[in-house]
Design a protein around this nucleic acid. Structure first.
Length: 258
DNA sequence: ATGGTGGGCCTCCCA
């Protein structure tokens, strides 16, 4: 079972890359973030023709998440509980039946939170608090759960080429990193970090030649419940996708579960 | 180096 996450930075601008990547990588389930599309403009036909079921949770202009799956969806839950006034499309959960039982996969797009001291930073921390509460509740199901997405959190200094450059950024604040660590301490395993000590980045800014200098950060993560972590066979970052024409600034991260 | 690049979309917002 191959599960991937990719912030594609606009599904309509990235449809050719997305189709190329799906054919090449062949994930069973792909979580997308920043689709920047409303649901009825999502290019579902092209994706369905590759054998995927498509569920989206979009909004106009910004944000938006989707899950593509070769398995049929038993259930889809949109929106992260905990704030009924939150209109931003950043979270959806799909539930699937596998030969080994239920599998839950979340596609999440955690708020960026910049600049520090703003409402946006408070929103990020509140969103992470809601995520922690939701995850703690889901853990009681004792099922394999994969929380995949763009967390907009650099967990550790080794997850950035130039950590000192991020000291005043919301992605590397003690509060952001602490909230990510609390999620881990609930019992969720960072699949990539559990698989390798290699320096791996998932995002390179479009600006200032960041890609050419390998000035990257690791902010796209797959967090696994104990029942999912027990089945983790491999994890990798598909870095070559960043070198394609018209790339997203993020690359896909992929895990294999037994 | 207080710029730089890119997507969405219509005037700037977001990253």
């Amino acid at each position: 079972m191959k599960i991937a996450t990719w912030n594609i930075n606009g599904v309509k601008a990235r449809i050719d890359n997305l189709l190329t990547w799906l054919k090449e990588s062949q994930p069973d389930i792909a979580c997308l973030q920043e689709i920047k599309s409303v649901d009825d403009q999502f290019p579902r036909m092209e994706i369905e023709s590759l054998g995927y079921h498509v569920e989206t949770h979009g909004q106009k202009g910004f944000n938006g998440v989707a899950i593509l799956s070769k398995l049929r969806f038993d259930e889809v839950n949109r929106r992260l509980p905990g704030d009924d006034s939150d209109e931003q499309a950043r979270f959806m959960e799909g539930v699937f039946s596998t030969e080994r039982g239920a599998l839950r996969v979340v596609s999440l797009y955690l708020p960026n939170g910049n600049p520090l001291g703003s409402e946006k930073f408070l929103y990020k921390l509140a969103w992470m608090d809601r995520l922690e509460r939701w995850a703690a509740d889901r853990l009681m199901l004792e099922e394999p759960i994969v929380l995949a997405g763009d967390y907009n959190v650099i967990p550790q200094p080794e997850d950035a080429k130039n950590p000192e450059a991020w000291l005043n950024d919301a992605l590397f604040q003690p509060e952001s990193r602490g909230a990510f660590r609390r999620l881990a301490n609930l019992g969720f395993t960072d699949a990539v970090r559990a698989s390798t000590d290699d320096v791996l980045y998932t995002f390179w800014d479009y600006q200032a030649g960041a890609w050419q200098k390998n000035n990257g950060i690791r902010i796209d993560h797959l967090m696994l419940s104990p029942e999912a972590a027990d089945r983790l066979a491999a994890a990798s970052v598909e870095k070559h996708v960043r070198a394609w024409e018209k790339p997203s600034d993020h690359v896909p991260v992929v895990i294999e579960l037994n």
